[in-house]
Amino acid sequence: MKRVNRRFSTLLFLGIAAALLGAVTLAGICLKDAALVTDFSRKDLPPCQGFLFGTDWMGRDMFARTLAGLSLSIRVGLLTAGISACVALVLGVLSAAFGGWVDALISWWIDLVMGTPHILLVILLSIACGKGFTGVVVGVALSHWTSLARVIRGEVLQLKTAPYLLAAEKLGVSRWNRVKLHLLPHLLPQFLTGLILLFPHAILHEASVTFLGFGLSSEQPAVGVILSESMRYLTTGKWWLALFPGAALVLVVVLFALLGERVRLLLDPGSVHE
């Protein structure tokens, strides 16, 4: 039997993982209304054929709530990771390209953000922006860009002295074209990998802040809200309220982390031919 090479298996994994995450996101959007339906005649049901993840104390379907919560988490994760990665790209490029006081200022800012306890910074930013969806997005987006900004800064510093970039300058290629043709394409692998690896962080922090009560509002079927509410019922033996949403969240986070790792393997010149 022909042995499947690593590139093919990586691409296959990427396809399946992306399809799975896409399906969860879409299913969550479709089940958004079902997740809010209350029916006290079926309250506190353990997992059964009709309700795979059981029901809660208001008779709400935990399967629908979990999918809707994951979908919301993934969308918040995509948005915040996207904003974070763009902030990292702009600041990393500015820092390395201009050097001097611009570099010093941005590097100091990176150190400042990295030096502040992460969850505390997210909570403070979320409170400052009025909590809720906006608070979570601003909080997570403005606290996760630092590591990627450092990577991009280092990469640009190295690229700045690349002979092909210096030669293009001597040939009269405009500054914008040098950035567009010779700088950004070389930054794409780091940017994409960094972006995907930001998702799990963003999702976990969104759930954590929401769980602690500083994030999404309680009427939204977010995983953080579900876990926070289920805490009150765990001691009464309703284990399914926390187990399934918690396990699903861990699964999504692990899937994103593996996705990022596989994308890095595909884009990294050192491993692309394995």
Binding site: Y164, H182, P185
Partner: peptide, 21 residues
């Protein structure tokens, strides 16, 4: 500014051509 009237051709041409272009 602009195209330099003094151009250099290097011993190792692969270093002055962008590998992704």
């Amino acid at each position: 500014e602009g195209p330099c009237p003094v151009q250099m051709v290097w011993q190792h041409p692969e270093t002055v051509l962008d590998p992704l272009l």
